[in-house]
Nucleic acid binder design. Structure first.
Length: 240
DNA sequence: AAGCGCGACAACCGCCACTCA
DNA sequence: GTGAGTGGCGGTTGTCGCGCT
């Protein structure tokens, strides 16, 4: 059996995302979660490819993303990790909470790479070439990596007790925002105090991720009811 | 004011691995 | 086992703003 091809690719929009498109994507994901990137744009009212939507969400729209203004410490971390891992930007991004691989890659290509080249040139005047970028991790590199990894392993105390929903999502399994102190829009605009999308189980209870939870940064946890029909929900949506 | 070059950043493309029918 | 769909990754290109001439 062959799967049906998704969404007509001939009329897909390209180029810079407009604020309206951003809002549509945010609103849709806030309501329904991420269930299928290729199908999602159709129901979200976006003439974009799934890939484009995924990229936009992952790199710019999802909560808790820090952009620009790299600190000196982050600079050093990126340089060290690039030296050890090479251009494995996703791996490097995993070591830098709130930073995306695309952001790090751009930052490296536009700034850090030049700086490193200059520094290497100045070092190479006094250091044998074989000791530069030899690909062999030094003890200090290993220690650096160990320390970094240790700092990234979440400690139990860092997570508050899971929250429990006190309201009913009207019998639906839709993702929703639990933090009643801010609107959906605010939840994204002020990412610092953001509570994440919740997934509702059958008994209308839910588990919440901590606002500090790194889990959210990599893969939000959604439940998708197999009976859920996005088409029905699309037409019922008050946001569209 | 217009044209040009450059840097920074956003977005796309192609490939690969994995999953599913 | 096979082929199509999907998601993720890294390289590359496109776009925009700014400074210089």
């Amino acid at each position: 059996m062959v799967r049906q091809p998704s969404w007509n690719k001939t009329c897909l929009k390209k180029g810079t995302w407009s604020p309206d498109e951003d809002q549509k994507l945010i609103t849709y994901i806030m309501r329904h979660g991420i269930w299928n990137w290729n199908e999602m744009p159709k129901y979200a009212g976006l003439a974009r490819s799934g890939k484009s939507c995924r990229l936009r969400w992952m790199n710019y729209l999802r909560p808790n993303i820090k952009r620009g203004n790299f600190t000196r410490e982050e600079d050093e971390t990126i340089v060290q990790l690039q030296k050890m891992l090479g251009n494995r930007w996703s791996a490097i991004a995993a070591m830098l909470p709130q930073r995306t691989d695309n952001d790090i890659k751009n930052y490296w290509n536009s700034r850090l790479k030049k700086r490193v080249v200059v520094e290497n040139n100045s070092v190479s005047a006094t250091t044998p070439a074989t000791e530069i970028n030899s690909g062999v991790k030094s003890d200090s590199d290993s220690l650096f990596l160990d320390t970094l990894l240790d700092s990234l392993i979440p400690k139990l105390k860092d997570f508050p007790e899971p929250a429990t929903c006190t309201f009913s999502p009207s019998g639906s399994n839709h993702a929703a925002v639990v933090d009643n102190t801010c609107s959906m829009e605010n939840n994204f605009v002020s990412s610092e105090k953001c509570w994440e999308i919740q997934s509702f189980s059958d008994n209308d209870c839910c588990q919440a991720l901590s606002p500090n939870s790194q889990l959210w940064l990599y893969e939000p946890i959604y439940e998708c009811n197999s009976n859920y029909d996005p088409v029905d929900d699309f037409w019922d949506s008050p946001f569209i």
